[in-house]
Amino acid sequence: MNHSAHEYFRHEALFYAGEEEFLAGTVPFIRDAVWGGEPVLVAVSQSRARAIANELNGEADAVHFVDMTELGRNPACIIPAWSDFVEAHGARGRPLRGIGEPIWADRSPAELVECQRHESLLNLAFADTPSFWLVCPYDTDALESAVIEEAQRSHPYLSMDGTQLESASYSGTEFAAEPFRAPLSEPTGNVHALPFDADGVPALRELVAREASDAGIGEGRKNDLVLAVSELATNSIRYGGGHGVLRHWRDGEMLVCEISDHGTIDEPLAGRVRPDGGEIGGFGLWLVNQLCDLVQIRSFESGNVARMHVRVE
């Protein structure tokens, strides 16, 4: 494998089958980084991290590990973690490496779509970051072929069986920058809808608090969800046409609250960039991503839809 110095953001999908190939694809890459003095962050499951650390022996001390099942529970939180890593270690274009495996076999269909959106947005988020080489392992044994095909579209570089090549089907940063319009499945079961305007936000909070309590969600998570719904309803009033609709329902282990309005999201990375006060609604989307277990944000022609999922304990 050629791990030569890189002078641009290299976003690479690593296709592997089984742990042996996983380690063969990742450990030399990490070892090169350690020997070259390049900071490296490995965001994978804890069991994968243990396997890597075993192979690396003492060299693992120089490697930053983060549990992807925790960090990437809401895939919209992964880009901020990479941004923090780049900011902390990438001064003056210092070469950086990362391994991030956001997609695993038992991701729910809704999570999978958000992970794929995340992979696509990485190309945009780090387009101007020099010398950052990010490898995303995909388990070809465990994942469906459609997932592998999508990885080829979201990664400009591919790596398999020790060879690296450019992806012929890479869809580019322009694609990532377009409004995200992946369809949302229509909820089943009991769906409750409540239209709201500026006067109705306190009532929304009351309703969501009650629903969360009834669902058995604990005090802390209940308040997180109430805050998330309040923030997005406020955005609807300020930027989404002055009113919106809240819908809520149970989806398996999740309580889902959805806010729809007539707004549009012009900034594809909204909610994934730490706000500094300048962005429209930037704090709201940022908070919501950080507070919920899964967030699905769409900017359809008819307006914005945001679904917030909180796990029922």
């Binding site: 802390g220 308040n223 997180d224 805050l227 730490r274 704090f283 940022w286 908070l287 950080q290 507070l291």
Partner: peptide
Amino acid sequence: APGWVRRMCDVLG
């Protein structure tokens, strides 16, 4: 500040 307010503050910086 209750836990959820502290959590919001962490997120907001």
